[in-house]
């Protein structure tokens, strides 16, 4: 077994009240790959990744991360999570935010400083670290959230719509860094998005619609399978088949 399953999702169902948000979801995610979950808003992507992080529990089924059943506090050390909406302490500076979250993980002081410098550099915030977050633009907040997600050098990155509100140039550089993290450090990365061109960069994509995964595969496989040239078209075709 040279390829371990970093994440296993087995027969997961989740409802809020009477509304079924996820229906019988099954998939495995292998180490060192980028997985994309694409789907319109309201399709259940956020609910799914929150359960992977262990912030919510499935009504039915189970989720395993790095071999441990979630939720699990120890495993959280190995997960970098970026929420869909920025959750930052706006009265504090960027650096103070990074420092605070770094202190919540098992890092020694020298390592903390190194990781803060690295994360800030990665998202292009080095020069703005001493500004209060309340003075940040939307894109800067998004970038700080990403920096917080990678602060403890986790094995698994779970990023919920990471590039919303970030300009194309920086978006490209973030994607290049994600690819580098995957290739050089063997990190497993899960990304949700509703932008099709980002999906092209993933190794595997799953298309989510109304709480179900309607298609899974590499971008190339999917286009091949439906005989179309764009993922947009795949999404339309796959969606039609389900209905």
């Amino acid at each position: 077994m040279n390829e371990t399953n970093t994440i296993q999702v087995k027969e997961v169902t989740k409802s809020f009240g009477k509304k079924v948000v996820l229906k019988d979801i099954n998939f495995d995610i292998k180490q060192g790959r980028i997985y994309g979950f694409i789907g319109p808003s309201g399709s259940g992507k956020t609910t799914l990744v929150k359960m992977m992080v262990g912030m919510d529990i499935p009504d039915k089924g189970s989720i395993y991360l790095l071999g441990e059943k979630m939720p699990n506090l120890e495993i959280l050390q190995q997960i970098g999570y970026m929420a869909q909406s920025d959750a930052l302490y706006t009265a504090l500076t960027g650096k103070e935010n990074l420092m605070f979250f770094a202190s919540l993980f098992k890092l020694d002081n020298a390592e903390k400083q190194k990781r803060i410098a690295y994360a800030a550099e990665l998202v292009g915030l080095t020069d703005d670290l001493d500004k209060k977050v309340s003075a940040y633009s939307g894109g800067m907040k998004r970038r700080l959230s990403l920096a917080l997600a990678i602060i403890q050098n986790p094995q698994v990155l779970i990023l919920d719509e990471p590039t919303v509100g970030i300009d194309p140039e920086l978006r490209l550089s973030i994607w290049n860094e994600l690819l580098r993290l995957k290739n050089e450090e063997g990190k497993t990365i899960i990304v949700t998005t509703h932008v099709m061109d980002e999906a092209e960069k993933c190794d595997y994509i799953s298309m989510v619609r109304d709480g179900s995964i309607i298609a899974t595969g590499t971008p190339f496989q999917l286009k091949e399978q439906y005989g179309v040239h764009s993922l947009d078209a795949v999404f339309l075709h796959a969606g039609r088949k389900v209905q």
Partner: peptide, 14 residues
């Protein structure tokens, strides 16, 4: 309300 509590609970803090 700002979501930082939820964010906090995505770390190993008890």
């Amino acid at each position: 309300t700002t979501g930082t509590l939820e964010r906090l609970l995505a770390t190993p803090i008890k």
